[in-house]
Simulated assay, not measured.
Amino acid sequence: MKAAVLKRFGSPLDVEEVEDPLLGTGEIIVDIVAAGVLSYANEVFSGERQYLLELPVIPGTGGIGRVSALGPDATHLAIGDWVYCDPTVRSRDNAIAPDINLQGLSARGPGGLRLQRHFRHGSFAERMRVPTENAKPIGVIDPADAARWCALGTLLVPYGGFLAAKLQAGEIVLVSGATGRFGSAAVAVALAMGAAAVVAPGRNDAMLAELTRRFGSRVHPVKLSGDETEDARRMTRAAPGAIDCVLDIMPPSVTANVVRPAIMAVRPYGRVVLMGGVGMLGGPGLELPYPWIMRNCVTIQGVWMYPASAAVRMVGLIKAGLIDLTQFEPTCFDLDHANEAVTHAAEHREPFRMTVIKP
Rank of each mutant, 00 (worst) to 15 (best):
A4R: 01
F9A: 08
F9Y: 15
G10S: 13
S11D: 15
V15G: 10
V15Y: 03
E16K: 02
D20A: 07
G26Y: 13
E27V: 02
V30C: 05
A35Y: 05
Y40T: 00
F45K: 03
S46R: 11
E48R: 15
L52P: 04
E54S: 13
I58M: 00
G65Q: 12
A69C: 09
A69F: 08
G71Q: 03
D73L: 11
T75C: 01
D81E: 07
Y84V: 14
D86I: 07
S91K: 11
A95C: 05
A95T: 08
L102Q: 07
G104L: 12
R108M: 15
R108V: 11
G112W: 00
L113A: 08
F124Q: 09
M128A: 06
R129A: 08
E133H: 09
A135M: 12
Y159Q: 14
Y159F: 15
Y159P: 04
F162Q: 07
Q168Y: 10
G170K: 09
I172Y: 04
I172A: 04
L174I: 09
V175G: 00
A178Y: 11
T179E: 08
A186D: 12
A188T: 12
A190C: 03
A190W: 02
M193Y: 11
M193D: 11
V198M: 13
L208M: 06
R213T: 09
R214W: 03
R214E: 00
H220T: 05
H220E: 09
V222D: 04
K223H: 13
L224P: 01
G226C: 12
G226Y: 12
E228H: 11
D231W: 11
T255S: 12
A256W: 13
N257L: 05
R260M: 06
A262Q: 07
Y269A: 14
Y269D: 15
G277E: 11
G283R: 10
P284G: 12
N296A: 12
V298G: 09
V315S: 02
I318D: 00
F333G: 01
L335E: 05
H337S: 03
R353Y: 10
K358T: 13
K358L: 10
